[in-house]
Design a protein around this nucleic acid. Structure first.
Lengths: 246, 246
DNA sequence: CGAGGGTTTGAAGTGCATCAAATAGTGTGG
DNA sequence: CCACACTATTTGATGCACTTCAAACCCTCG
């Protein structure tokens, strides 16, 4: 669990940054500055990147692997806020929270991330209205995503939530036979969906009976998305080919 | 259930706008324009202001009364997103959703609202980076609020959620005897907290036993907040005097 | 006073959590 | 390539929390 900071050409960081959607319209000057104060980091599974309420000076972009964002109570019960992979940004909202992180972050497998300086971002947001618009856009999208999350947890049952999760892993307009690989541990998927591992296991079995999907370990196959979407999307306010934009 | 649009001096609308936090740093020019294209509206209980996915040209500010934001499935099961009162803004996020509303809105009692033009807001956001910063700030705050909401629904039981709701109705640093009035119907509070009315009733009774609060209709009294916070905040990741900022 | 909505209470059912234990799967060193 | 250790996953049994359906109660307001 040691931090390894690779000294990489900032050139490379800069091109990585360019792939992040909120930086799309940013100019080279800013990205160079950002890159100059950035590093690549590699961490092992289980590494805590920061804790809820920690003082925040940096934010991060996932280059590879999965990162879990969560909050927990004094007695250790935890609620998973989100689980992110490549291209996703986290810790940046500390800017709006008196420079403290609103959640904790942990590597759930070996990861590579880019560590960036919050103050650089802050300065640019104030200067470049295009950037603040991009952030506003992405923030709004996340809010709507959370609305759906709350809705799902109150309206859908465990099996339907799993079905919905699977649907989000594929291109929903795809037709014909489909193969899905769970992106991380079933236990983690369970916590992401707000249920216990045992419940996940049983609910997946039920989903199998109801929709005819075939489950082999972390691989799931089906003839088409039709049955799955009929079963899961019945208890959702968005209609079926529900992209991330709905 | 008829819309009554009072022709009011835009002067008056303008000063109402000035009380809304995201407009704090806006200049008079913009507020005048906004006010010029705005109207007061009065609506009766039950009035649907707009529906999820409706095409959006206007956004709103609550002047008095309570407005419910919700989403619902085809078979009519609904999930309450939020319930807003004076000074709160809604429908504005349609700007970031291809000009469609991400939820439905309904008056849950007679209300007065100010109807404003989205295009005015859009133009100003692009022009005035101070405004987009304010919106970014408020959006971030709402996101964190939603994170907590998700956490509460997965970690707290029904009684604890009610206790937490009560705590948010009072100034939590207050000491000594406290009297709280529920701001709207118990049925509505229940749906706001994601539970059935019957569950609410029973859970409130349980909360009474556990914390010694006294319940008379919509009025709730207690000697101090101590017991209530001990009971409810045990299952929460924020420590007790949890302001809206935590 | 009577109608209607809001609220409470009762009885029964369902879904998920919990605890415990078995099983499958993975990576290790020999 | 095998045996072992360790973890992830499944299965079983049981309990609790919340929902559902039904009915009573209560309050308000015409």
């Amino acid at each position: 669990m040691r931090i390894e900071e690779k000294i990489a050409p900032t050139q490379s960081i800069e091109s990585d940054l360019r792939t992040v959607s909120i930086f799309n319209n940013c100019d080279n000057n800013f990205l160079s500055t950002l890159a100059a104060n950035a590093q690549y980091q590699s961490h092992n599974k289980g590494k805590i990147l920061f804790l809820h309420d920690d003082n925040a000076e940096r934010f991060y972009i996932v280059k590879s692997g999965w990162v879990k964002l969560f909050r927990e109570t004094l007695d250790g019960v935890q609620a998973v806020v989100d689980i992110l992979n490549t291209g996703h940004i986290f810790g940046e909202t500390a800017l709006f929270e008196n420079d403290t992180y609103p959640y904790s972050a942990e590597a759930v497998e070996p990861i590579e991330i880019i560590s960036l300086q919050l103050s650089d971002l802050k300065a640019e947001i104030e200067r470049n209205s295009q950037l603040s618009l991009s952030m506003l856009q992405s923030m709004a999208q996340q809010r709507r995503q959370q609305d759906k999350e709350i809705e799902h947890r109150s309206i859908q049952n465990a099996s339907q939530r799993i079905g919905c999760f699977l649907l989000r892993l594929v291109n929903q307009r795809q037709e014909g036979p489909i193969t899905i690989h769970l992106p991380y541990d079933k236990t983690l998927v369970a916590s992401r969906l707000g249920m216990q591992p045992e419940t996940f296991s049983r609910a997946l079995a039920k989903l199998r009976e109801k929709t005819g999907i075939r489950v082999k370990g972390a691989t799931i196959e089906m003839e088409s998305l039709t049955q799955l979407s009929q079963y899961s999307c019945a208890a959702c306010s968005s209609e079926f080919p529900c992209t991330d934009l709905k």
